[in-house]
Design a protein around this nucleic acid. Structure first.
Lengths: 143, 143
DNA sequence: ATGATACCCGAGAGAATTACTCGGAATTCA
DNA sequence: TGAATTCCGAGTAATTCTCTCGGGTATCAT
């Protein structure tokens, strides 16, 4: 049970944009270099994020990407659901008709509880929180 | 973000064994029929559970499988970790050296929190709990 | 205008993983 | 002995994941 690298790359890229928020548009290449991501792959990933309205792009020379909203309004849950697909542990969580037993299936209860817990944790963490975490981690590193 | 069918099959099979606990060994075929699982695939899955000591097998005619412990001592977390691989969302959770930035990486904090939450939920649910859930679900269905 | 920069997009290659299948050996009960 | 059943390694088909390619389009600087 692991995240795909697509999802990790996407979240790293968004964190990078959060760090550079206000510093003008960032190119694919510069993000990819800082975050150590194959740049053509990142292009694909960031395309998804743009189509969903989480980042805005500026084409042409001096173009690049910027967050579409402040870091405090973007949660990891949003990112993960976009990049990894919706969080539901079995088809019957999204669609009760996917299985004839849904109404009386105890595993369905388990998957439901797990899904809720994952979403709750992830929706409670914003990019802003991560920026603050990093400041704290760096200070601890120094002292 | 979904469970593999291997994992769902395995848990359904274990739940089936819990329901038939005390009723003698259950054959692959009978479990597969009740739980709607391809039986040769189930054979493979249940082999993993046997090697890890969660079920015991009896070979030969009238043989089959039984739980190695009471349902109250088997958690979904144990099963999921066996069947789906250990729950860690990125390599750096298990092995800090997997990434040079581990010490100062805020995503690592996120994956850590998520991993903890998932394990906590899953380790709190036993097969016995699921048996009781099912009784309750059936009663609700009737009334 | 022109050229350099950079996003945009669909198609596809290669590798890994998943979900199964097959055939046959070993064991046990009746 | 023979039928039932587990045990095991190998193999295959489908899917998904990761990443690449090539060419198009928009924009800025000169």
């Amino acid at each position: 049970m692991k995240l795909s690298t697509r999802c990790r790359y996407g979240i790293h890229a968004m964190f990078d944009l959060a760090q550079n928020n206000g510093a003008g548009p960032q190119t694919i290449r510069s993000i990819a270099e800082r975050q150590i991501i194959p740049d053509q792959y990142l292009e694909q990933i960031i395309g998804v994020l743009r189509r969903e309205g989480l980042v805005v792009s500026m084409r042409g020379a001096q173009g690049g990407y910027m967050l579409a909203r402040p870091p405090s309004e973007i949660t990891i849950g949003q990112l993960l659901r976009l990049l990894e697909g919706p969080v539901f542990m079995a088809d019957c969580i999204e669609d009760a008709d996917a299985c004839v037993r849904s109404g009386q299936c105890p595993s369905r209860l388990v998957w439901g509880r797990l899904t809720d817990c994952i979403n709750r944790v992830l929706d409670s963490i914003t990019l802003q929180d991560m920026l603050e975490d990093q400041v704290r981690l760096c200070e601890e590193g120094i002292s």
